[in-house]
Structure formats: structure tokens, C-alpha cells
């Protein structure tokens, strides 16, 4: 089963909208609560990153009997130093988004912690693609 979503980079009020849609679908499919919990955390963080750091993008979710596969693709600025970006506490968030409660530098670490496999393909000036696998059972 495959779902596709576009993330609007300009509309802050849509924050978390796609994550909640996917959560509801996975609940309907009867996936285990622990899987839904991990997907919810990872998806919210990646969706928000797309909005606040990359001006939007696209999300594809594929559910197989074995795992949930999620791809986040954006044409944003890319991540110059990925190792640094993965560190807890590192953030380039603007003051504007910090006031909304972002910028702890915990998003990417949260994604890593809640996925069974995470790959990041990023190029400065071209964009970032994050692929996640969350195993079922």
C-alpha cells in the first residue's frame, strides 16, 4: 500500500498535518501501537524539518507486511555537515521558529532513535532525501 503527500513549505498552520493523517491510516490498518508511535515521532520531525528548513517537499509512505517505508524528499538548501546536524542540540533554526518551540536540535536524533534504518542523501543547493524503515514486529 502506497500513500503520497505534498508538504507545503509556506503554510506553518499545516504543521504535523500529514503525520496525523498517516497515523490515522496506520491505525485503521491495525498496525501495532509501538510501530505507530515510532512512525508518528519520526514523521512529525521530518515533516517539520521540511517546512522550517527546506520550504516543503514530498512524502511517500509504503506499508508492506514487514515494514513501513517512508521517503521524505525536498529541494531545499541541503545539509552542509551531516555529522554535525545529527548531533543532539545542533540547530540552525531561525529565531522566528524557535519562538514556536523548534530548534532544540533533537529532530534528527529523534528520527534515528525511532527508525530501524535511516539513510540521508543530501547535497548543498540541491536538496535532501531521507529514507526510513520501521519494522513491523
Amino acid at each position: 500500500m502506497v500513500f503520497h503527500y505534498d508538504v507545503d513549505g509556506n503554510d506553518f498552520t499545516l504543521a504535523g498535518e500529514i503525520s496525523s493523517k498517516v497515523k490515522k491510516r496506520l491505525k485503521q490498518l491495525g498496525l501495532p501501537p509501538e510501530v505507530i508511535r515510532k512512525v508518528s515521532i519520526a514523521m512529525y520531525e521530518a515533516e517539520i524539518n521540511m517546512v522550517i528548513h527546506a520550504n516543503g517537499g514530498a512524502i511517500d509512505v509504503e506499508v508492506t507486511p514487514q515494514a513501513v517505508h517512508i521517503t521524505f524528499a525536498d529541494q531545499g538548501p541541503g545539509i552542509p555537515d551531516l555529522e554535525k546536524a545529527m548531533q543532539e542540540g545542533f540547530s540552525t533554526a531561525s529565531n522566528e521558529v524557535r519562538e514556536l518551540g523548534f530548534g532544540a536540535g533533537m529532530g534528527l536524533p529523534n528520527i534515528k532513535k525511532n527508525s530501524d534504518n535511516m539513510t540521508i542523501d543530501t547535497k548543498v543547493g540541491e536538496g535532501t532525501t531521507i529514507k526510513l524503515v520501521i519494522n513491523i514486529a
Partner: peptide, 10 residues
Amino acid sequence: LNVVAVSALK
């Protein structure tokens, strides 16, 4: 809005 989004997701 994110307070509601995060609360609902968790």
C-alpha cells in the same frame, strides 16, 4: 498549533 499536533500524535 504544534502543541496540539504533538499532543495528538503522542
